[in-house]
């Protein structure tokens, strides 16, 4: 079932929020206010939003090094996200994590993770907890095509399948593991095909079509909630930017390939879809939505800038829970 027009507009707002957030994060990274490294999700927004639009607040997700989109789609607070990127005390991790390690356990966002495939087993454990609780909660693992070649992917799929855990494995196949093409590292193009080996459904979906992602995720979530076990969803998508925002980050992707994918913009696609439906989105409404999104980003930056840096000695806190 398609989400209501109102829900679709909300999905559009979230996708645009991810894009605007990251455009600003990239600018401020290059301007020196954000440190370390930033990985942008731009181009893949439909995956996070399509999947998270099927989840409840107490459902849990785990993310990757490219995690801003998952945070925003699960409902994270932009102020605390931006403050974390700025390394401030008011950030989600009190300035201890940065872009690669934003988590909000209060909304079931179990964290971005700097290790490819590092989160898959963790969120499978959250799925086990959900099964033990027996309240119909589900857990979602976001990961990339690169992670699908690592051991934890296979170990976790096997256990989740054997124990019928309520886990949805969402592979964001953006065709590149860092700078290496999936064509060089996968014998078989479709990662979803691997689901067959574990006896679970494997679904391929256009990852730039938020409504298609929503539909596939809704089906997998319903199956998980019903106690029927996990699903592997492969979302074919593409990142518009280089692997990271670092200066001199090489990018070996062919120009024509990038051009083809830029034309498949998931946001423009949803805008066009809504505009084509009578009375669902006008140009003026879309412009106003974008202005509101930008205002929210501006507020987040203001919050970050006006927040104090943590005291250096705070480095000694939180090594252990007391």
């Amino acid at each position: 079932m398609q989400p209501s027009p109102e829900r679709q507009r909300e999905m559009l707002r979230q996708m645009q929020t991810i894009r605007r957030f990251e455009e600003r994060a990239s600018d401020d990274y290059h301007g020196g206010a954000i440190y370390g490294v930033v990985h942008c999700y731009i181009g893949e927004e439909a995956v996070a939003v399509g999947v998270c639009s099927t989840l409840n607040r107490d459902d849990q997700i785990i993310s990757t090094h490219r995690g801003h989109g998952h945070c925003i789609a699960k409902g994270a607070d932009l102020n605390r996200m931006m403050a974390e990127l700025y390394g401030r005390e008011t950030g989600y991790c009190k300035g201890k994590g940065g872009s690669m390690h934003i988590a909000d356990f209060g909304i079931g966002m179990l964290g971005a993770n700097g290790i490819v495939a590092g989160g898959i087993a963790i969120v499978t454990g959250a799925g086990l907890a959900a099964q033990l609780d027996g309240k119909g909660r589900v857990a979602v693992s976001f990961f990339g095509d690169g992670a699908s070649n690592a051991g934890p992917f296979h170990e976790s799929l096997n256990i989740a399948a054997a124990w019928k855990l309520p886990v949805i494995f969402v592979c964001e196949n953006n065709l590149y593991a860092a700078q290496t093409s999936a064509a060089e590292t996968h014998a078989q193009e479709d990662i979803a095909a691997r689901a067959h080996g574990y006896g679970i459904p494997g679904v391929i979906v256009d990852g730039n079509d938020v409504l298609a992602v929503h539909g596939a995720a809704a089906k997998a979530v319903a199956r998980a909630r019903a106690g029927e076990g996990p699903t592997l969803i492969e979302c074919k998508t593409y990142r518009w930017r280089r692997h990271t925002e670092r200066v001199n980050q090489p990018d070996f992707r062919p120009e024509h390939e990038i051009e083809v994918w830029l034309k498949k913009d998931p946001i423009a696609r949803l805008v066009a879809h809504l505009k084509s439906q009578q009375g669902q989105l006008t140009d003026a409404e879309w412009q106003e939505m974008d202005r509101q999104v930008l205002r929210g980003i501006e507020e987040a930056v203001g919050f970050a800038k006006s927040s104090p840096f943590p005291k250096p000695e705070a480095a000694l806190e939180d090594v252990f829970a007391s």
Partner: peptide, 21 residues
């Protein structure tokens, strides 16, 4: 009783612990 998959078990414990177990 689990598969011989220590990486998954070790990680799953983290996720279960973070979920109240």
């Amino acid at each position: 009783a689990t598969p011989i998959a220590e990486s998954a078990l070790t990680g799953m414990a983290i996720g279960a612990a973070g979920s109240g177990y």
